[in-house]
C-alpha cells in the first residue's frame, strides 16, 4: 500500500537520490545552500501535514519555528557545553510540539475551526514578533543570554555529536537523513489508521464525529505533530545561520509556508517538498541577480500558478504524469477524487 508506482513516488525517489549525490557534484557553498532550503522544507511539510491532511489552516507555523529557534539559542548558549547541543535540538522539538498541543487544545476543544484558526495563529505570531522586538534591554536576560531585541541572538553554537561538529557536508547529510525519515513517516501516516481518520476530519468534521472519533483530540494531536515539525525547521535554520531574530515570527515568515504549500499542492507532501526547494532557489537567484524586477516576477509567478493550476503546480504535474504513463491509476484516482468532492 505504501510504494505505489506513480509519478509522485518515482519523482520522490529521484529527488532523494539526487539530494544524496548532490555534494559530489557541486562546491561547498551550494551544499550549504541546499541544506538551508531543506531546513525550510520541514516548515512546509508541517503545514502540509496539518492543512493538507487534516484541513487545519494555520497561518502561524512561524510561531513554533521561532519559539524553538529561540529555545535552542538560549539553552545551548546558557549551558555552554557544546556536547549538550543535541539535547537542545530534541528538547526544542518537544517544546514546540507541547506548545502546539496546548494551543490546539485551547482552539479545537473551544470549537475554533477553519479560517479562524488561521487568524488566531496569525495574531499569535505577530504578538511574539512585537514582544521579541523590544527585548534588547538587560531586563530581558534568560540566564546569561540576552534575548537581543530586534537584532536577535547570534553566534549560536552548531550541533555537536560527541566531539564531532556538524558543519558543511555532515550538516547537510544530517538534515537530509532526518528529512527522509520524516518524509517516509508522513507517507506512511497518510494511510495509517490514524491518518485515515485525519483525512476524514478534513473531508467532514461532523460526520467523523458521529462515527465516534474524538475530533478535537485528533486535531490537537496532528497540530502538535505539525508544531514539532515546524520546530525542527526553526532549529535547523538556527544551526545553518547560527542566528535568529524576531523577523522569524513576522508576517512574511508566516505567509511564505502558506504560499508554498498552496501553490505546490497542499494535499501532497512530495509537491510541498519540491516546490519549497524550487521556490527558495528561484527567489534567491532573482535576488542575487540584483534585478529590481525580482519581487515582481515572484509575485506574478505565484498569481499565475494559482490561477491556472488551482490544485497546485507540482501536484498537477504529478497528475498529468500519471495520466500520461499510468492511465489505470489515474483513472481510479480521479474516481476517488470525484467521490470525495461529492
Amino acid at each position: 500500500m505504501l510504494v505505489k508506482l506513480n509519478t509522485e513516488n518515482i519523482v520522490a525517489v529521484l529527488i532523494f537520490l539526487f539530494f544524496f549525490v548532490y555534494p559530489v557534484l557541486v562546491d561547498a557553498y551550494s551544499v550549504m545552500n541546499l541544506a538551508y532550503f531543506l531546513s525550510m522544507v520541514f516548515l512546509s511539510l508541517s503545514l502540509s501535514l496539518i492543512w493538507g491532511y487534516c484541513g487545519i489552516f494555520s497561518f502561524g507555523q512561524a510561531v513554533f519555528f521561532g519559539i524553538s529557534g529561540y529555545f535552542y539559542a538560549v539553552f545551548t548558549l546558557n549551558s555552554g557545553i557544546t556536547t549538550l547541543t543535541p539535547l537542545g535540538l530534541i528538547l526544542g522539538v518537544l517544546i514546540g510540539g507541547v506548545i502546539a498541543w496546548i494551543l490546539g487544545y485551547f482552539m479545537f476543544y473551544g470549537g475554533v475551526n477553519d479560517v479562524f484558526v488561521g487568524l488566531i495563529t496569525l495574531c499569535l505570531t505577530l504578538v511574539l514578533e512585537t514582544f521579541m522586538g523590544q527585548t534588547a534591554g538587560d531586563q530581558w536576560m534568560i540566564g546569561q543570554v540576552n534575548l537581543g531585541g530586534f537584532n536577535g541572538i547570534n553566534s549560536i553554537p552548531s550541533l555537536q555529536i560527541g566531539s564531532f561538529i556538524l558543519t558543511g557536508n555532515s550538516f547537510y547529510y544530517f538534515v537530509l537523513l532526518i528529512l527522509l525519515a520524516v518524509f517516509i513517516f508522513l507517507k506512511w501516516f497518510e494511510f495509517s489508521k490514524l491518518g485515515i481518520a485525519v483525512v476524514a476530519i478534513r473531508e467532514n468534521r461532523e460526520r467523523t464525529k458521529l462515527l465516534g472519533y474524538n475530533v478535537p483530540f485528533i486535531q490537537s494531536l496532528v497540530f502538535a505533530m505539525g508544531g514539532a515539525l515546524a520546530s525542527l525547521s526553526g532549529i535547523f535554520y538556527v544551526l545553518w545561520g547560527n542566528y535568529i531574530t524576531p523577523s522569524a515570527f513576522g508576517l512574511a515568515s508566516a505567509t511564505i509556508p502558506v504560499v508554498l504549500v498552496a501553490a505546490g499542492g497542499r494535499k501532497n507532501v512530495t509537491a510541498a517538498l519540491l516546490f519549497t526547494v524550487l521556490y527558495y532557489w528561484f527567489s534567491q537567484t532573482l535576488s542575487a541577480s540584483g534585478s529590481e524586477y525580482a519581487l515582481i516576477i515572484l509575485g506574478l509567478v505565484l498569481i499565475v500558478a494559482i490561477l491556472f493550476v488551482p490544485n497546485g503546480l507540482i501536484a498537477s504535474l504529478f497528475h498529468a504524469g500519471d495520466q500520461l504513463f499510468f492511465r489505470e491509476h489515474s483513472k481510479s484516482l480521479l474516481r476517488k477524487k470525484g467521490a470525495k468532492t461529492l
Binding site: F57, F59, V115, G118, T255, V258, V259, A262, A263, E292, Y293, A294, L295, I296, L298, G299, L300, V301, L302, I303, A305, I306, L307, P310
Partner: peptide, 17 residues
Amino acid sequence: TLDSVVVTWGVSLVMQQ
C-alpha cells in the same frame, strides 16, 4: 478563501515593488 491568500500576497509584492 485560502487560495486568495496566495494570490493577493502576489498582488501585494507586485504593487509594492
